[in-house]
Design a protein around this nucleic acid. Structure first.
Lengths: 244, 244
DNA sequence: AAGTGGTCTAGACCACACG
DNA sequence: GTGTGGTCTAGACCACTTC
């Protein structure tokens, strides 16, 4: 009784129902890791649906990593979706104000520099490339929550020179004005000492969450930023769920 | 010349070509934040494709957050995809061995406990619920890279009692044996002191990246784990890109 | 050779939101 | 009402992979 194992619940679009029916079987152990699912043609019969609908249901599960599909070999349960997780990447402004608290930010520095000046080079750009350097601290209810150190490529975004960032913080301004197509993130932990600790208003030796990010527009470097968050005032939360 | 603005490149499936053509226009500024795209019917004419194909192209962009779709109102550029990012969540074993280094792990503790015992309560389960507590340290080339402190619900996974975890580390064993459908993650930075620093083999005061994770199977709590990584030996890297 | 998924078309009905 | 996207069907051709 293959057909009886899959139960449609009548809720919402048919392809979602099929997704849930198949997902439930996988979660309940009806299909284990490596097991092969019925072919699309068979599922068409089982669910009395068109092949397009079945395909949409199953290929979406494949995109999420729950199953893997191969021509001729068919569809097998894979569980690869466990290898990634999604985290929100909010601007600090959104992070603070979404919790109903007071946001404020303060520019600490703003100057034009050459790539490589001051020791560090942004390897994605040639040496001596013109950059705008910005340092700002973001406060939540008056308490520093993020130190932003940012380089913006003046070749890619020349009109940033005319922007004072008095109304909008650099991060938010860039999000609103410069479309990007690629991003790289690196997360790590570090200890705040000396000047850094002073800027963040924390005791030297405080653990901080550090995010390094580069963004590109069609391969062209746009901006590179380091965001330092005091560990006791900031964390990132993400949820992931299945069920269609 | 609406039609001339969109250029198909002839590479790969038609719906991908359409995706790239539309994405390119958005990235080039042809359509800015809030601008409305042509309707599916219009795109059908522009690209000489069926509505299904156009729908697949555009609704996938919507799923990624590049545009937003509304009945009657049409499709507008939204850029919401900037609000999330995907990070790999590999098991330590994969993380270490994928870089060709030597992996080893060592069990530090394994005992049955009651929820709430020892101060901390796992709020997703009732007090006094039976739990298996496991503590293990994972090493990369002989150097501790992760301290794992895990609780497993014995009501949800009773047969875990029979597992010795001599062959496979608890994290990997769970991944391979217990399907889950929901997960929650929290990332933060903390400083390792005293016993924790000793277990990780780092100097007291070292910054650590801490991941707290809970996983559920159809709403039922399965396991809760805290992973502590020395900041100077571990970081998380993620890439995100667009272009179809 | 044959079975699988990948893609595409033409046509249709519907739900929703705006005027 | 009317235009939009959301979904569904029936049928088709193709590419890939295993047999």
């Amino acid at each position: 009784m293959t057909a009886a194992r899959f139960a449609l619940d009548g809720q919402g679009p048919l392809f979602k129902q099929i997704q849930r029916a198949v997902t439930a079987q996988i979660l309940n152990g009806g299909y284990k890791l490596g097991d092969r699912l019925p072919s699309e043609a068979e599922l068409t019969q089982i669910f009395q649906a068109s092949r397009q609908t079945v395909n949409k249901a199953i290929s979406e599960l494949a995109k999420h990593g729950l199953v893997e599909r191969n021509r001729r070999a068919g569809t097998v349960v894979s569980w690869r979706f466990q290898e990634r997780f999604v985290l929100p990447l909010q601007d600090v402004w959104d992070y603070v104000s979404s919790s109903g608290r007071l946001y404020r930010y303060q520019m600490l520095a703003r100057r034009e520099v050459r790539n490589g000046e001051g020791g560090e080079t942004w390897t994605a750009l040639p040496a001596e490339a013109r950059l705008l350097f910005i340092e700002a601290v973001h406060l939540c209810d008056g308490l520093p929550i993020q130190l932003e150190s940012r380089y913006i490529s003046l070749d890619a975004v020349p009109w940033v020179e005319a922007e004072s960032f008095t109304e909008t913080a650099p991060g938010k301004w860039l999000l609103n004005n410069i479309p990007w197509s690629e991003a790289e993130h690196r997360l790590r932990a570090s200890v705040a000492e000396g000047e850094l600790a002073a800027k963040l208003g924390v005791a030297p030796g405080t653990a901080c969450l550090v995010i390094d990010r580069q963004t590109f527009q069609l391969g062209r470097p746009i901006t590179r930023v380091q965001l330092v968050h005091p560990g006791d005032r900031f964390s990132i939360f993400g949820q992931l769920s299945f069920g269609g």
